Amino acid sequence: MDPAGSGAFEPARTHLADGRELLYFHDGGAGLRQGGVPPDTRSLPPRPDTPVMRFDPLLGDWISYAGHRQNRTHLPPAAECPLCPSVPGRATEIPAQEYDVAVFENRFPAFGPGTAGSLPDPAGAEAPAAGRCEVVAFSPDHQGSFAGLSLERIRTVIRAWTHRTAELSKVPGVAQVFIFENRGADIGVTLHHPHGQIYAYPYVTPTTQRQLDSLAGYHAAAGGDLFTDLLARGQEGQRIVAHGQYWTAYVPYAARMPIEVHVVPHRHVPDLPSLTEDEQTELAAVYRDVLRRIDGLYPTPTPYIAAWYQAPVDHPGREKYRLHLQVTSPRRAENKLKYLAGSEAAMGAFISDVTPEQTAARLRAALVDPAGTGGKQ
């Protein structure tokens, strides 16, 4: 099986007025549909300086301080959306008047611009929050959702994710590439337009490091592969949400959130560029099915976080780590959200009101809108 890789097609590249890179991905292949790559005619202020990050010796975490993000765009009306295509008289972050998928460097990054070498000794350290933050516009349509995209468009998004993972993994100083979508104001999105983000971190994130430690400990104690055993347990039946030839979506045995689904490849691969074309094609259908089931639980769209867990770029545990997607939502009832209060926020000790088996049964039984507009039929 040949990996799909980032070389399946090359996007059209350009730069915005302040020097940030912009890439266009087309459903049928490379670049834009027609007309070439239009320039950004805006007059923009210089890019902000690279943020600073500090090391917390008590918890062992790096914290980035990006004060310029206080001024980022916050839930503008549709007429002022920066992710809609540019039109005569109103230029946006995307100069093209027509596009399929666009990826560009975030104007208000938490990491970067700039790259770095190895991090300093963490004890009491301060370092540049180098790396890169990108925005992925899933569609020129201001309305709608990822679940409402066509399979062809979702496939294009997956190709864009794959391309960016492969390219960002080669940037000096980047330790991990994280792809995610925050959906809904209750999650904290600042733009309504359907979009996701990509963070290229200068360090291995705390959650990933905990997973790597668990993998090493499990192998040392049981001699097996933890991801393989978790997948086998998830495929037993009660917690399955969707199943294909290459992927299984299930509610994990110890789910933390009221809605939590893991989408896991059957083959052990470390990241998106390692997937084959067939695996990416089926992923588009399985992922859309999961999101439509989540939206089918209630009459109104459900907020969620969709997070791609990929192996760190250069780490001794990379080959033991398996790519997977986690979709979580704090929505525990139609008009109720689970808040991370005292026990969860302070102690990291989660308490759930519903069992994983109940959540999986509800998702399997959800009446899904075939058009992908959200809500029950």
Rank of each mutant, 00 (worst) to 15 (best):
R90V: 02
H163C: 02
Y65M: 04
M53I: 00
T355I: 07
R72C: 13
A96N: 04
G196Y: 04
P258Q: 03
L23T: 02
V52D: 04
H163P: 01
G60V: 09
T165Y: 09
L212T: 11
A285H: 07
W308D: 01
Q238S: 14
A255I: 08
G29N: 10
P265E: 05
L32Q: 01
I94G: 12
L283R: 06
P77E: 10
D61N: 10
T115D: 10
Y309F: 15
P172Y: 08
A160G: 01
V189Y: 09
P303T: 05
S150W: 13
Y218K: 05
A147S: 13
F178Q: 09
L32G: 00
Y250R: 02
F350Y: 15
R69Q: 04
Q280N: 05
I154W: 00
T205M: 06
Y287N: 03
A116L: 15
D186C: 10
T276R: 01
A255S: 15
N106T: 00
T355G: 09
V313P: 05
D121M: 13
T208A: 14
D27K: 14
V263S: 00
H74N: 15
V101P: 05
Y24M: 05
P252A: 03
P45N: 04
S343V: 13
G196Q: 06
R20M: 02
A147I: 10
D141G: 03
P38L: 11
A341V: 04
I63T: 08
A341E: 02
Y309T: 02
H15A: 13
A366L: 08
G114V: 09
H15W: 15
M53C: 11
P11Q: 14
F104Y: 14
D295G: 03
A79G: 08
D2M: 13
A242N: 08
A130W: 12
Q358A: 05
P316S: 00
G29K: 08
E357A: 10
